[in-house]
Write a protein that binds this DNA or RNA. Structure first.
Length: 247
DNA sequence: AGTAGGTCTGAACGGTCTTT
DNA sequence: AAAGACCGTTCAGACCTACT
């Protein structure tokens, strides 16, 4: 069987965006709303695709990401169990704790330079991790892709997948489109996540006796964190600048 | 107004892995 | 081995925006 065969007649070849009244993100939003109402029910991915008239390939992508975020889990082959979109913030916050600890012994490029062909879940975690790590309100898709790109694979493929990830994160309200085209804003409890991650960082330093800038300076936490973000953002803009020069 | 280039999305190809 | 599930990648084309 060719997995690419759509179950539902596609509308793209002969019709433009004008002729497709409902966007797939809207369909996914309604699917999510429906699943939220009936938590802990198992469902078939193919059934969701068929009953919502969406190509099953798209549905696989969406639920693959939701599974990575802990929003649902695999019940059996082709069947999933809905847990709830609240779980996504918890999963992301836990991931970000680890990222901050990992960053103690790694630099900016190494922390965010992903292997070629990262999974949608891995991309999603790192997208949100990047927002938090830099403590920036808005990032563009291009900026994100440049940070993640390994320099070898085709960046367009990474960009295509980032479009998917960002639109799926928008479905569960973790990301919102900014007024500026191609720019996205993070919508999570940023303050809480950052505070929690910095606490974990401090714990990690204590446990491992790591000699870090933090352990040497007598700054107050606030000033230290402020300086750290300034430095991180400088590293980020250096990556952007280098990319521009190599273009 | 015309247009070139960028953004975004749907669709399909082709492959791997798992199940029967 | 065949069928089915799953997923990375690529392409085409509609839409958007900035520039002339």
């Amino acid at each position: 069987m060719n997995a690419a065969q759509p179950l539902i007649t596609p509308g793209r070849k002969t019709k433009g965006r004008n002729n497709i009244p409902i966007k797939s993100t809207d369909v996914f939003k309604s699917i999510v709303a429906n699943l939220e109402q009936h938590k802990l029910t198992t469902f078939s991915v193919l059934h969701i695709a068929q009953s919502n008239m969406v190509q099953h390939r798209r549905v696989y992508d969406f639920f693959n990401l939701m599974t990575s975020l802990g929003v649902c889990k695999v019940a059996s082959k082709g069947n999933l169990e809905w847990i709830g979109i609240d779980k996504a913030e918890t999963s992301i916050s836990d991931f970000y704790d680890e990222l901050e600890v990992h960053a103690l012994s790694s630099n900016f490029s190494l922390t965010f330079n992903l292997v070629s062909s990262p999974s949608l879940g891995n991309l999603a975690y790192h997208v949100i991790g990047l927002f938090l790590y830099l403590n920036m309100e808005t990032l563009s898709l291009k900026q994100i892709s440049r940070v993640f790109h390994d320099g070898k694979s085709d960046i367009r493929s990474l960009e295509r997948r980032l479009y998917l990830v960002l639109s799926f994160l928008e479905v569960i309200n973790l990301i919102k489109r900014s007024v500026q085209v191609g720019h996205y804003t993070l919508h999570v409890n940023r303050e809480f996540m950052i505070k929690k991650a910095w606490e974990k960082r401090k714990e990690a330093i204590k446990i491992s006796n790591l000699v870090s800038i933090e352990s040497l300076l007598s700054h107050s936490d606030k000033a230290l964190i402020h300086d750290a973000y300034k430095y991180r953002q400088r590293c980020f803009f250096e990556v952007m600048y280098k990319y521009f020069l190599n273009k």
